[in-house]
């Protein structure tokens, strides 16, 4: 890959305005620059902040995966992370406005669906080896107290104990939703969509331990962002 990445948020069904005029590439560049100088247009945009949060967590797990420099070799296992990136762009949308309390005349307290999705996605920080891909809130959430279900797709690192990790993630999400929302959550459905092969970043240590007897660790140098693969 050379030059500018060829992805376009419109192909994800997300207009650029959904991130207040910025693309994931813009936000990645902004992170590369250490968020300095602070850009008020980004920092005051909830969608951008939600996307930045998710990009930072992704970067913390695979520090050089989103590097701007592109190595000559083709990447070998990008689909997993591409799916995560697609989820970040889509989930950063504000979405529906959800009441935090029962209706009181003159008082209207709410939370955006995007903020809740960000809250749910951030639960991955409590569960080693897990990355949240997409997150859905099913139900008539615009009406307070109506039963809703949470549905999310995750990827796990090879070697991660899946049942225990899923249970830990579910517990963490439930606690977060109880703390921050008035949602009447009746269930949290977690679908494990990918188990990623061991990865090392270019010139670095494995991103997670490689089990004995497994295939040789593969090396990812670059990332082509191509949402067409995730539709």
């Amino acid at each position: 890959m050379t030059g500018e990445p060829d992805y376009d948020l419109k192909t994800l069904g997300v207009e650029p305005e959904e991130l207040d005029g910025f693309t994931l590439e813009d936000l990645t560049d902004y992170l590369d620059e250490g968020r300095t100088p602070p850009n008020p247009a980004i920092e005051e945009s909830a969608g951008c902040r939600l996307a930045l949060d998710a990009l930072e967590r992704l970067r913390a797990l695979t520090p050089e995966l989103l590097a701007a420099d592109v190595a000559a070799e083709p990447a070998t296992d990008e689909g997993w992370v591409q799916g995560i990136l697609a989820g970040i762009a889509l989930d950063a949308r504000a979405g529906r406005r959800i009441p935090l309390t029962e209706e009181v005349p003159g008082r209207d307290l709410g939370i955006t669906e995007g903020a809740i999705r960000g809250l749910i996605r951030a639960a991955e920080t409590a569960v080693p080896g897990v990355l949240v891909g997409r997150c859905f809130i099913d139900g008539e959430v615009e009406e307070f107290g109506v039963p809703v279900r949470i549905r999310l797709e995750i990827g796990v690192a090879f070697g991660t104990p899946i049942p225990a990790s899923v249970e830990l993630l579910r517990t963490e999400i439930a606690a977060r939703l109880r703390t921050h929302t008035g949602l009447n959550v009746t269930g949290i459905d977690i679908s494990v969509r990918d188990v990623s092969a061991p990865i090392v970043v270019a010139g670095g240590e494995p991103a997670w331990p490689e089990p004995a007897g497994s295939e040789p660790t593969r090396e990812i140098h670059s990332l082509d962002i191509n949402p067409e693969d995730n539709r």
């Binding site: 949060d53 406005r97 307290l109």
Partner: peptide, 10 residues
Amino acid sequence: GIQVTVVHIE
């Protein structure tokens, strides 16, 4: 009326 919307949780 006063409308307060939580749009981000840090």
